[in-house]
Design a protein around this nucleic acid. Sequence first.
DNA 1: AATGCGGGGCG
DNA 2: CGCCCAGCATT
Length: 347
Amino acid sequence: MNFSRQLVDWYIVNKRVLPWRDTENPYFIWLSEVILQQTRVQQGLPYYQSFVKTYPTVEKLAAAPQDEVLKLWQGLGYYSRARNLQAAALQIVEDDLKFPDNYKDLLRLKGVGDYTAAAIASFAFHEVVPVVDGNVYRVLSRLYGISTPINVPAGVKQFKELATKLLNKKEPATHNQAIMEFGALQCTPKNPDCSSCPFKLDCVAFQEDTVRDLPVKLKKAKVKSLYHHYVVVQTPSGKTIMNQRDNSNIWAGLFEFPYIEANGSLLSSEVIGHDVFKEVVGKSRFRESVYNQQPIIHKLSHRKIHAYFWVVKVEEELETAVLVEEAFQKPVSVLIERFMKKFWQRN
DNA sequence: AATGCGGGGCG
DNA sequence: CGCCCAGCATT
């Protein structure tokens, strides 16, 4: 099948009228592409209009006060885009006002990555480079039934290679516009209109009924915050208390200081009043102080632990305490290891 | 390889 | 509520 030909045919009939499609001015195209990064057309449209109107040339943008640019960007989100936009405008103006006219040089601009460089290079300069944005991942993964995750390097590579192969070398600009528009209007994330799709006979996902499963995207495990208040005992003879974790969860079998699990920071009165603390210290007199006022942040793949270490000097020896030297022999987590080394000054 | 960075629309 | 949107920079 001649994919590109059919795609462009579809595009000619179905495309929306959008202002940045009526120009080959690289500056305008660049503006539109940056505005549309992770942003829907409908949301970006008014911002594009006001930027073009306020800064009709790259020199005007370069000369504008940063606050003014940010003000104009207000409400659009991802504000580093606005700062990078202006930084790049300055780059261009200082570079003798020669707007970069190819993919490789465009990539040097602040805020211009692989997608945006390819978009400007093809739309404004007809360079033969494929755009690979969220739409393209979706369209290609479905059409070819590719389940490689789109957000891992292997997937990025695979889809870019496929997009390169499919790209219409004579009309890269129209082809690139068309495939994105197709993803935005027809091959949508939810409820794509497969019944009227010109590719339904060739679409692997449609034939195999996996449209709703594609593209595959690795979801980052959402990180849960935990607050651990560790009780670090010091007996008169310099011993401390450590417990071994059970085998059913993280850090299984490793040793650690007894700790209170809380929903945030604690007052020392709350620590002292807690059952875990009472259990550890027993009836002995004590003086407590927090080692770190600010939590030590320890990140795991799916946990973010806010650790507070409470140092508790007790006046009596405790049954289960061990010498610090012995404590250092025990297997512990990196979090505990780092604290111990700092606190007891061992290497 | 992971994370932070926004605001809005949709099912 | 979770997902996604014409992604990029930084670590």
